[in-house]
Nucleic acid binder design. Sequence first.
DNA 1: AAGGATCGTGCAATCGAATGCACTTGCTGT
DNA 2: ACAGCAAGTGCATTCGATTGCACGATCCTT
Lengths: 340, 340
Amino acid sequence: MSRGPKLSDVAAAAKVHQSTASRALDPNLSRRLSPEVVERVRRIADELGYSRNAIAASLRMQRSRMVGVIVPDLTNTMFPPMFRGIEDRLSTEGYSAILANSDFRPAKERSIIDTYLDRRLDGMILASAHLEDAEQLEALARKVPVVLMNREIADASVTAVIGDDAGGISEMFAHLAGLGHERIAHIAGPQDTSTGVARRDAFLAAARKAARGFDGRLLVAAETYSEREGYRCARHLLEAGGGPTAILAANDWLAIGCLTAIEEAGLNCPQDISVTGFNDMPFADRMRPPLTTIRIPHYRMGFEAADHLLALIAAPETTPTRVVMPPALIVRGSTAQRGG
Amino acid sequence: MSRGPKLSDVAAAAKVHQSTASRALDPNLSRRLSPEVVERVRRIADELGYSRNAIAASLRMQRSRMVGVIVPDLTNTMFPPMFRGIEDRLSTEGYSAILANSDFRPAKERSIIDTYLDRRLDGMILASAHLEDAEQLEALARKVPVVLMNREIADASVTAVIGDDAGGISEMFAHLAGLGHERIAHIAGPQDTSTGVARRDAFLAAARKAARGFDGRLLVAAETYSEREGYRCARHLLEAGGGPTAILAANDWLAIGCLTAIEEAGLNCPQDISVTGFNDMPFADRMRPPLTTIRIPHYRMGFEAADHLLALIAAPETTPTRVVMPPALIVRGSTAQRGG
DNA sequence: AAGGATCGTGCAATCGAATGCACTTGCTGT
DNA sequence: ACAGCAAGTGCATTCGATTGCACGATCCTT
């Protein structure tokens, strides 16, 4: 556990000055040195098992080559592919990623951010939904490069990489309409999340465009993105008298809850009623019936987020961007021609 | 993006020496200072928006309060809960975790480890299965505190936190035997993984204990832990003539593949044949039928791994431990009394 | 009242690498 | 033969926080 050799040890062993050793080990600067010296220093560094102290370098260089990532809950299947995308982009530039979960708690998020600031990370990717205050977020973005992932703030003053909620919902609505459905219900997500609101608005826009009026009985909002809530809302829709022939749920969990409620009611999906989800989570294809849903390219979102963060690190004054990832309609067994 | 105030700025504003300011901001040392000074320094630090430079502190203290985690693939549902356990344990001590995926590639793992060493992380948790060479691993463990998670090496010379494969399998075997099954087949996992081998050995031990001979037709090994392989192996078992009334698969994916094969063969699970998995992954309860399986406490494994790592960091010369996490039998619909 | 203990604070030396500047070579050109 | 130049290398400072040591002041003890 003893401290290994440092640069000056390598330099001494190679009979050159530290600064020369430093340059010899840096591929960019080693061109200015004589080949023999470079060769010798490198060989000796190897022999000694020298490992560059990145901490000392960070202090001197004022950059840590690390970025912080905050997600609300890593066990949500959306996030692992996102993180992989982030890591894959970052690693090509020699960056590492620190990861933490906020558990949807603003206080926890705040404290994670504070440790990240202390650690002088070069940037942060926030997928955590809170830190409600847009002002706080902007203040943060003024101190350190920040990219939002899977969420955004109102005036787009912070770079954000998001899924195209509106596009996905309207594509799904068109799919159902194309199958002859006219009474399409919506189970909205929690209305205190940006996705819940965006998807509901997109649904209402599509519904109003398709027909004159919209029957209010065809809309319910869930309180959380959970199977339980999907079940509850579906029962509500079935009993409300709106006579839906299709249910467009705001995400896959809600849709799965629907399936249970429909089965319990003695109905059959998709013969009697079609159901759709959103996200295409793992196993969506293994439900009974397999779920028709919208796929959001999570890996690519992470990759893009990291890419934009790196750009921001390189040029901090760049104007914020809003990157929208294209959704894809995945048609499976849970939707069918109306009437079956 | 300008550099914020440093300790000496705070000190100057509070009209004290840096060292005094440093002590005032450290809860342990501030007791030795006069309350007024402590109060004043803290207030001024707040007013100035001072943020302690953790990099400089790390350099001086020779500890980074960061640990590195390597998993083969974060999108495998086992790992997110483990990581949460790790983070939850670490965060109480002010530690952060860097995460990276090795993709089962030893070269990638090696290069991740090298960056971790350069960054002078205080310790590492390795859930990546490779770095085959036990010697390399021991050499690494001599340089830096290391805890293995979900794997171990032969002579237990590195601390490891693992699931009780043998215990889980024998408990499952007993469950099936208790239901009257006598011809129990096993779909083993890949034999180049420690879990694949451990589970197969445990199965064979249980089978041999239960009956005199063991019918070789009741054993197949999958090449990967995948649904495809589960399907292939199950077909093989059904055609081999061993007449299994139950299939004990080495993990949930393999079991799910079995379900498909059984259905295709016109048989019914569990009436005609029982199937069991291992891991209790998310959605195991949503299969048709819901899967009887063994639950491994992944969150707790992560928590324990982090706990042991912290202990190792505090006292590097501690002798390696082998921590075995207890499995739990989760009985669901995929197992039934023999003969329905 | 003098010596000693205690308390609060300042001084200055680390930690390890990067780098602007200056210096020594050796070579070219006139 | 010497100015001029370039290539290669060394020197010394810097990044920001921590901490052993020392010093002065205050208080206690006998």
